[in-house]
């Protein structure tokens, strides 16, 4: 890791190639693991691994700042939330939740088709000599695409691109940035409201009284008996996830 951290920003070197292939393999393998592992927690861990390798790839893309943000937000927050929910609900196995054969064939065929299209589109113009990033890359021939590289775009003392990104965010993209802040606020409020779980705590007078009107509306949504069953199970399960696994 040490070595990696020091060599990664150097564009065009063999180190980059090695690092790329290592992380690419990890990323693809973990991605396939995510969609194929039956155990949800294993899938989530694989997804964390995938995110970390994406973070590594960001390093080779001269975007160290993004790399750290990737680890911090995806690895540190989003996936923890995922695992938290999985464990809260105690649903780490989904043996019964598989698609039927026809759907599987169709899905894989469609995915393969799209993947083929991607390969078809990028192999060639983007995989030529000229597409090796860096200021000293050869001029692109016809049908080839050049890669400028970020090294000269960054400030002298800004190897990670934090300044580079920050300047853009606070100048060109001010309004999107503010909108993103608003979006986060709204999402927070929405999550708080959704997480009230008033229907499960009828004995709690405070909440029942506060939300009597809203609860009336929601009662109509309860179209089948599943909710009642879930509530029962939740109360009885006490420690989530304790009774589900078979070893």
């Amino acid at each position: 890791m040490t070595l990696l951290a020091q060599v990664a920003p150097t564009a065009g070197g063999t180190a980059e190639v090695v690092v790329f292939w290592v992380f690419a393999v990890i990323a693809l393998g973990s991605a396939i693991a995510v969609i194929s592992l039956r155990n949800v927690v294993h899938g989530a861990v694989m997804l964390v691994l995938n995110f970390l390798s994406i973070g590594g790839l960001f390093l080779t893309l001269e975007s160290a700042f993004l790399s750290v943000i990737q680890v911090l937000v995806y690895g540190g927050a989003i996936m923890v939330l995922f695992l938290f929910v999985i464990m809260l609900l105690g649903v780490d196995r989904d043996d019964l939740l598989q698609a039927d054969l026809r759907t599987r064939v169709l899905a894989i065929a469609g995915g393969a088709l799209l993947a083929g299209a991607v390969l078809f589109a990028f192999v060639g113009p983007y995989t030529s000599e000229a597409s090796v990033c860096g200021p000293d890359a050869p001029a692109p021939g016809p049908g080839e695409v050049a890669c400028a590289g970020l090294a000269e775009a960054y400030d002298e003392d800004d190897g990670a691109g934090a300044r580079f990104l920050g300047r853009s965010l606070f100048t060109t993209y001010t309004y999107p940035f503010e909108l993103a802040a608003l979006l986060l606020t709204v999402a927070t409020i929405g999550a708080v409201i959704l997480a009230r779980r008033r229907d499960l705590e009828p004995e709690d007078e405070d909440l029942a009284d506060l939300d009597a009107a809203a609860a009336d509306d929601l009662d109509g949504d309860d179209l089948d008996g599943a909710s009642g069953a879930a509530a029962e199970r939740h109360v009885a399960g006490d420690g989530p996830g304790t009774t589900e696994r078979g070893g």
Partner: peptide, 11 residues
Amino acid sequence: GAMLAGAIVVV
């Protein structure tokens, strides 16, 4: 699935 089909067509 429908979106996938659409994406394939567009591509």
